[in-house]
Amino acid sequence: MIAVVGAGLVGRRAATELSARDHEVVVVDERRMPQRLPAGVVSRTSVPQGASVVILATPTWAQPDAAAQLIENGNAVVSTSDAPADIRAFERLDLDARRAEQPLVVGAAHSPGLSLLVARWLANGLDSVDSISTASFGTGGPACARRHHQAIRGFGRHYDQGQEELCRAGSGRRLIWFPDPIGGVDCYYGRLAEPFLLHRSFPEVPRIRARIAATRRDRLTSRLPMLRPPHDEGLIGGCVVEVRGRGAKGYEHRLLASCAPQASVAAHTAAAAAEAVLQGRFDVGVGTMADVGDIEGTLSTIARSVPLFSFDGKSAQSDSTDLSRPARKPKRQ
């Protein structure tokens, strides 16, 4: 049995996904009406005793305490929180999770979550990885929108030469091209959990960056309370993962992106993580999506519901059919 705590967008969609895959699913949320849940999913006000895995899909601040309690009760936990403070709190539960012999999967959402899985998939086969960069666009439900608002103020962290460094949220602008219909968007450093999680799973990678898409208005108003209530759901979301490193073919630059509503991607990732836990594909203790045993299988499962895109760039100088442009002098080797 899989219990999903929280009947928001992510919780409901994860329950629907797992129910469609013939799992016994219980949604735990005392505030929601049962009729809002998908057919075949039972509603409870507390986590049932027999739950093998518990997905935490509540607002982020509530998750570390809930995870500690669940680990103490002997449940495996999958968390969808993306708040850096929560991730630090989860890391402190590592010893408890090992004692309980249960996995605690952290950051199992879109970005972090799917982004970590994609980073591992891209890095596989490279002899050495020099750099991992991620960029995310969009928000899921209202709680996610509030987190996005908070993420653009204060200080974030990234890794340079393997060392953790502070960076001002809202700085480090870079134009990132997401798949259509998103297109090119300015992305900035932020108070994000992804660098910690990537560093945790890829301690040997010297350069780790995570950015978040933001508008001028987002950056200007980030220090103020939200000026209007967030939308019920951000309709489109995306994430681009870029891995650079040296492989058999020389220096390689690999990119993969996802483009779908953030809440749906987070739900599919959390559901895939819960299934992976049931199948014993996570070690005990704290782990991320990059630590799952079967990377390709898990990514394939998610890719059946979430469109993934690979980037195939082609330089004009290698395009012999285009004669309208004068050929540029090739770069000296």
Binding site: W121, W177, F178, P179, D180, L256, A257, E296, L299, S300, A303, R304, P307, L308, F309, S310, F311, D312, G313, K314, S315, A316, Q317, D319, D322, R328, P330, K331
Partner: peptide, 20 residues
């Protein structure tokens, strides 16, 4: 600079079955 910027290509949707 690093040669010319990509002039063609772009994001291509992946068939989940072709991930392998």
């Amino acid at each position: 600079g690093d040669g010319s910027a990509p002039q063609s290509g772009g994001w291509r949707e992946i068939d989940p079955a072709s991930l392998g």
